[in-house]
Design a binder for these strands. Structure first.
Lengths: 351, 351
DNA sequence: TTGAAAGCGCTAACAG
DNA sequence: CTGTTAGCGCTTTCAA
């Protein structure tokens, strides 16, 4: 394993010169640079990342804080991760997966104090989040993927739920739908203040009003069978129902199956728009889901970019508050169509 | 940021003593240990991971080599990743995501030579794999998740495809099915020597013979529409078909939809077993898929364990060849049932 | 059972 | 434009 000293000797220069051609922190004559580069190549030299980090106080590694709660990651979260990883790599950074739960503050404190990581990307952010509170007190830079209730002084990158819900409602209204159900995340999520659940709930109310249509929100478990239960409940409460928005992909598939088994045809009797959805899952349904496609990789990449910018900013900026919202984009596939005239008949057929 | 020197001063001992209470590499009297621990607690001391790594020549980080090829990770791969991450964390290691393509040998060489990582987990291994060839020449420990053609001298952890295929065929045969189609990965995968595709192809042939039934293999794209095309082709070539094995989850959903639209009822006209499948996707289908459930997290954890064992082994063991195979386990859900008597009639109904 | 001190391989003043 | 050198914070002989 060749060291920098070896390279210096071989090139006939001092170690600092070698170091400077590597970091580019000071001008080097073309001639010496070439000699150094050549020596490096001949020796197959690679700088020792640990030594480098110790001396420069920068590891070039960022941590991705990711509560690994049993069930594993969904397609959307996975896209975040790969987007962030790719973006970091392109910027010469590495990404470390840090499976620390929302409650594991001790572990997070240790992690942040070990100086292994230059900063953090925080996933699965709650409206109030202990990890965020902790990170604020430490001197570690971080950016949230998601938002807390109070984003003052924080850097956040998140889905623009308001816009996304409004776009989805607009799509359905544009197709003539006038009674719309919103199948949200679970009641527990809502009670627990889970950001996406709360925000979309409010956005849905606002969108109904803005577009002059009526509707109802139903909370659900994020599973296919949860979706089945939800759509039954929604139809009971709203027999005229012809449009459905659903927050969770798994629930969307359940809804689709349940409607079909109830003798209702999608999209002709009922139109369905799946929110924050990955393309794979959308394509996997029959018919493929009309969806607000989750900007997963873009979000991960954006968050990384923001974090790395701060790291480059080398010190605390004046007001570090910064929020970047990315809406999902509508992909019309097979589950949405113009509302039928006599929707009542169709929707009530089974009752 | 307290350093070890601070702790030593406060506890009234030398730095080396502090170091030894941390590493446990030499006996310390209970009294001094307590004083040191107390000092650490008072100062909120955390060892600097970079300094530690530099001095000890071990970073306590392992890299997960993961070709991030556009489309992102499937549920099974994601489970690998989370399983490995969790296992590493429990052993006091960190896991770094290394998105290096199968061809990026230069990048891999740099990564391995930088001494940032103590070892590698290699995902998406091909029958011949440049990354493996390279890692062999370097002195970095690594273990494959998957297998190359020649596993001599390598540590591998993989799915037991032979067993898995045989179990699946046995399940169908036990239900009275006598003509079985196997919808494999794409023809390109097969031609390219993709391990799972080749291995299952052979295992399928063997299983047919062993169980005394007939069948046909059809390659397919790993998408829902690929599955649709495949099942049509299979039924054309084998009108008696009543059992289907499918390698890809997305294709499985396509097959399900296509059979239904052809007027065939699953599981009564045709039984379907989805191979190497995640529980989420299985539950998302209607009816939920009978599947050979992918041991994703278990595999990731097993691979990590093997790697960390080698790292602890501190040097090259005698014969480093080691292979651990984990079969998928059969989860009977809604897509498999006893074969109907007059399967011919049912299967031919549409022709 | 403990301490002293020599590095680990690099960066970044400081000095020319 | 280049060299000298003092650390970065820890581990690990060597010596007691």
């Amino acid at each position: 394993m060749a060291t920098m000293t070896d390279v210096a000797r071989r090139a006939g220069v001092s170690v600092s010169t070698v170091s400077y051609v590597l970091t580019g922190t000071r001008p080097i004559s073309a001639a010496t640079r070439d000699r150094v580069l050549e020596a490096m190549a001949e020796l197959g030299y690679q700088p020792n990342a640990l030594a480098r980090g110790l001396a420069s106080r920068r590891s070039n590694i960022v941590g991705l804080l990711l509560p690994l709660t049993g069930r594993g990651l969904g397609a959307t979260e996975t896209a975040f991760v790969t987007g962030a990883t790719e973006a970091a790599r392109k910027a010469g950074y590495h990404l470390m997966l840090c499976p620390v739960g929302a409650e594991d503050t001790d572990e997070l404190r240790a992690l942040a104090t070990q100086r292994l990581l230059d900063g953090f990307l925080v996933m699965e952010v709650g409206l109030t989040d202990q990890r965020v509170d902790l990170l604020r007190t430490l001197d570690t830079p971080f950016v949230l993927i998601g938002r807390t209730a109070d984003t003052g002084g924080l850097a956040c990158v998140d889905i623009d739920f308001e816009q996304t819900v409004d776009d989805a409602v607009a799509h359905l209204v544009g197709l003539g739908h006038e009674t719309i159900a919103y199948v949200n995340h679970s009641g527990a999520s809502l009670a627990g203040g889970y950001g996406p659940a709360k925000r979309t709930e409010e956005a849905f109310e606002a969108a109904l009003e803005r577009h002059g249509v009526t509707g109802v929100m139903v909370p659900t478990e994020d599973t296919a069978s949860g979706g089945r239960a939800a759509i039954r409940q929604a139809r009971e409460r709203c027999p005229d129902l012809t449009g459905v928005l659903v927050m969770n992909e798994n629930a969307a598939l359940g809804i689709l199956a349940d409607l079909r088994e109830s003798g209702l045809e999608v999209p002709f009797d009922v139109s369905l728009v799946s929110m924050v959805t990955s393309e794979v899952v959308a394509d996997l349904a029959s018919p493929p889901l009309t969806a607000m496609t989750s900007p997963g990789t873009a979000l991960g990449a954006a968050a990384t970019r923001v974090l790395l910018d701060r790291l480059a900013g080398d010190g605390v900026a004046g007001d570090p508050t910064y929020t970047e919202l990315v809406p999902c984009v509508l992909d019309v596939r097979g589950t949405s169509a113009r509302a039928r005239r006599r929707t009542n008949t169709a929707a009530s057929r089974r009752r």
